[in-house]
Amino acid sequence: MSAESTLLYLDGVSVSFDGFKALRGLSLVMMPGEMRAIIGPNGAGKTTMMDVITGKTRPDTGTILFEGDTDLTRLREAAIANLGIGRKFQRPTVFEPHTVWDNLELALKAPRRPLKTLTYAISRDDRARIEEILDITRLSALRSRQAGSLSHGQKQWLEIGMLLAQDPKLLLVDEPVAGMTDAETEQTAELLCSIAGKHSVIVVEHDMSFVRALGVKVTVLAEGSVLAEGSLDAVSANQQVIDTYLGR
């Protein structure tokens, strides 16, 4: 498959840490607007995959292209983020001393250079956009609260809201529903689905019912490479997947 017309193109990506191969020849293709769920046992390389896409880790070998022509392996994290790749970490990391509003304002798509931020004054459009995101994430009433005082679920939502404010072309979401109640999980699934279409989304998740609720194409990783790809039902029936995932 050629890299053109894809949003994200990974081919033969390998990473090793002191002899331990975290990724071995991983290949993955995402189309614009697509939503993908990634599952796999612990140590399958899910987080490392996100690390190499976002520039946190440099791959030893392999190609990573964004929108067909931008080589991500040469860029630093901030540059990659500015291309339009947003990432949500496994553990919610919001800026705890800041208010909910400030968190969103920081994330909001706007010039990122120091001198620009030094003289930044919020515009009416920006204000409206933040209001909108507060609405979507149901945090309107909490806008002046310190982010550190939010509940775990609220922090997860705030972080998703921050991703939305960044308005990325591709969202990488690592275990968004860990530690959430069933109701919150359901709402999160709805939220992510509503985002897909405008944005491409990669979701890494352990929670099978959540993956089922998303109802999207599933990629199974194991020992650093792709084991199977297809609908959840199809991969669940795959004998190899059963052996590696369910067998242990």
Binding site: F17, D18, F20, A22, T48, K56
Partner: peptide, 8 residues
């Protein structure tokens, strides 16, 4: 230095 995830 040790490389890898433990460090990060």
């Amino acid at each position: 230095a040790l490389k890898g995830r433990a460090v990060e």
